[in-house]
Design a protein around this nucleic acid. Structure first.
Lengths: 233, 233
DNA sequence: GAAGATACGGAGGCACCCTCCGCTTAACAA
DNA sequence: TTGTTAAGCGGAGGGTGCCTCCGTATCTTC
């Protein structure tokens, strides 16, 4: 919303403001314009429709048109495509986050993780634009798009930690790693059978995450480096 | 190159019989123009540079400019961006394919698969545009871009089959599944530590692929559904 | 009701995609 | 060599999308 772009917002405090400058006073008290609030909501609504249907590449001008606002208005409220994604899918990210919270009470911690991942697949299946949020959370690094990244990392991290402390899962995988792998698998949606394929692959993956029973730990985890990899090329 | 596109061309001639015969004859013998051959090569060379550096999104007009040809010439030789990718990375795909062949003589079939996947990561790391080839092979379905898809599927399939028949790997995963998962993981490159992350995840994944020792086989592998061979396509 | 802050919209500049077509040029035959 | 002609060339041009900028309209406040 950013009602007052300048002024590093000192927050509702009359005294300091008065002292510092007149300018701040108006910034503090003036409430956001009604049309601005309305338009922002319209754009969000339109973006949800357009992104869910058309995926992350959808035209922003189409969004603006659908919302019945000018392209300039869209850009004022959401300066980048990413901002818009984050706003549109914030709720979904929160839902995933809450789901992780709930799953922490499940008996089997490994299965809890698996179920969380499966839910993630469903989200992506329903909302084609969701994958862009994942992409941004994962690809843009933690600084930008902090919200989604943090929430998702935390969600996956809590499930991971629980499984690790229970001794059910190997300890050398970070939540970020897992998030990236998950996102990567979801990314190749769009072919016919993608959903089933991803679910199969996730099962394989979760199986791989289980703590090795030491019986068949053969050559793995002896050397974290990559000794036997390349060969000439 | 398509040297004789038409040939339904009735044109210039007096007898019907003449048409067919003459037509075929000239089509057969006329050799491709030297400038066409030269330009095609130039475009390929430029595309390799541009794609390796700029990734799959790079501008085709930049490629044309770098090659010193008009944009029309580029499009004539490679009607779609995908065609260009395939031509540029054909050799790389072949190399990966051959590597799979070599790895079939390794002792441990599971490890062979792992090594192949790791080599794939290296290819992607070196050539940023390579990921586009993977994307096309995986995403566009088997009909188009048949070359890369077939080669890669075959390569991964042969390694997979060997491991499965050796009883070292679960049998309910298809080469296509695996290829997609692999590509997906590679797709999220571009952050700092992506390569290490992907290698870790691939290890996890391959571990998950190992045949379950029946001790902890919980709900998995209820329906193998597909013979150990590749099936379909 | 007036003033001033705030938001609106869309024109316009840029980049890229891809097609189309008049001109050029290489291959071949005579 | 020269003429013929298909094949190839290049780039203008039309389309789409991104994003910015600024004159105008509207809202809030007094």
């Amino acid at each position: 919303m950013q009602p007052c772009k300048g002024s590093a917002r000192v927050q509702s405090n009359q005294f300091v403001i008065y002292i510092v400058a007149m300018d701040d006073q108006t910034d503090q008290t003036r409430k956001p314009r009604a049309d601005a609030v309305r338009n922002r909501e319209r754009v969000l609504e339109a973006a949800k429709l357009v992104f869910n249907a058309g995926g992350p590449e959808a035209s922003l001008e189409a969004v603006a048109k659908r919302a019945g606002v000018g392209i300039g208005t869209l850009y004022r409220h959401f300066p980048t495509r990413e901002d818009l994604f984050e706003a549109v899918y914030r709720r979904e990210v929160e839902q995933l986050s809450e789901l992780a919270e709930q799953l922490k009470s499940a008996k089997d911690p490994v299965d809890a993780l698996r179920r969380w991942l499966r839910s993630g697949v469903e989200f992506v299946a329903t909302k084609k634009g969701m994958v862009a949020t994942l992409a941004l959370a994962v690809q843009s690094g933690s600084e930008l798009h902090a919200f989604s990244f943090e929430r998702l990392t935390k969600a996956i991290g809590s499930l991971l930690d629980r499984a690790i402390t229970a001794g059910a899962m190997r300890a050398d995988i970070s939540p970020e790693d897992l998030l990236r792998a998950f996102f990567g698998m979801c990314y190749m949606h769009d072919q016919p059978g993608w959903q089933a394929s991803v679910l199969r692959m996730l099962d394989v993956f979760v199986d791989g995450l289980r703590a090795q029973p030491a019986a068949k730990t053969k050559a793995r985890r002896t050397a974290p480096a990559k000794a036997p990899v390349k060969r000439k090329r």
